[in-house]
Design a protein around this nucleic acid. Sequence first.
DNA 1: GTCTATAGCTTGATAGAC
DNA 2: GTCTATCAAGCTATAGAC
Lengths: 189, 189
Amino acid sequence: MTTTKERIVEATTALFMQQGYSASGLKQISEASTAPVGSLYHHFPGGKAELAAETLRRSGRAYGELVGAILDSEPDLVRAIDVAFTAAGETLRASGYADACPIATVALEVASSDEDLRVVCDEIFRGWLEMLTRRFEAGGVGRPAAADLATSFVACLEGGFLLSRVAQDTAPMAALGRSMVALVEAAVR
Amino acid sequence: MTTTKERIVEATTALFMQQGYSASGLKQISEASTAPVGSLYHHFPGGKAELAAETLRRSGRAYGELVGAILDSEPDLVRAIDVAFTAAGETLRASGYADACPIATVALEVASSDEDLRVVCDEIFRGWLEMLTRRFEAGGVGRPAAADLATSFVACLEGGFLLSRVAQDTAPMAALGRSMVALVEAAVR
DNA sequence: GTCTATAGCTTGATAGAC
DNA sequence: GTCTATCAAGCTATAGAC
């Protein structure tokens, strides 16, 4: 049983991934979620801003958990990195290069023009970076280096989404997986 | 002497950097460039799509040349990388985290929904990657590794723009500079 | 080439029946 | 909670005077 509110958030997540915040109109969200505009304002009285904030927070948490689960699936840290980037590339390819990061496009759109949403995105990225830093520390990397690796992981993944989506080719994501593996290998030995 | 057409393209470049394609209305572009809407359609009969394509091509070429010039300013390749990332962070900070990549936000917005503009962005990134690959080859790195380094350079720079803009902090860009330096050091020795 | 006015459509948001 | 009708404001695009 998916509730109306869940359908709205899921449809908004998909539209934010594919075309970002400004291009995703409430009418389009209403149609994609098979929920009338009135229901949309019933569940999100704050309108588009509230819907966007809640969608970003939910999809940001879910995506962080997904990445964590993939990293957990492989005990060796270096191989886990390889698996994560391969999975990201495969998900992209299988979805026609649509299924990517649910935050990045919106984050770039709002960073200089919507302070509330910028803060929401900032908190999401902070959460991802903390989770990744802890994992690299658990793998034997010292504090400052682990934080740098976490930042590089997110940047390579986001850069991979950008380059692979635009080129409609998994090659950039694969190359970034190799670079990220090299960075982690250098840090753990 | 700046022509009307140049002012339009420059204003559009700035707006694309800060808020992307969909949020940048022709009225806003007209006001920012102090050019009436009619002039806009005189210089770009194809409307917003043509203006966007030409703006992306021009700003993409200019940004590639800027990065190339910064890399040329330092003979040692590893130090050149450091200089480039430091400069990117400093430009961000000095502009209130607004002056970033003129392509990335639009590229993510249109990758799945506007095939014409997607191809324009693809050609721009291809040009950057070729330019960077040649530079890494000139620095003594073999073909396949040089192409991977070029991809990592673009991804780290774009990821740095994303994370530093959202956090309003140069620290992510600085961390990515360190990672990129480590990757190039490992490749040249 | 420059500029104003406006058409036609879509947007975010609201009111009110059910 | 669900849904429809509608508003004011925004958008892209065009027409036509200068």
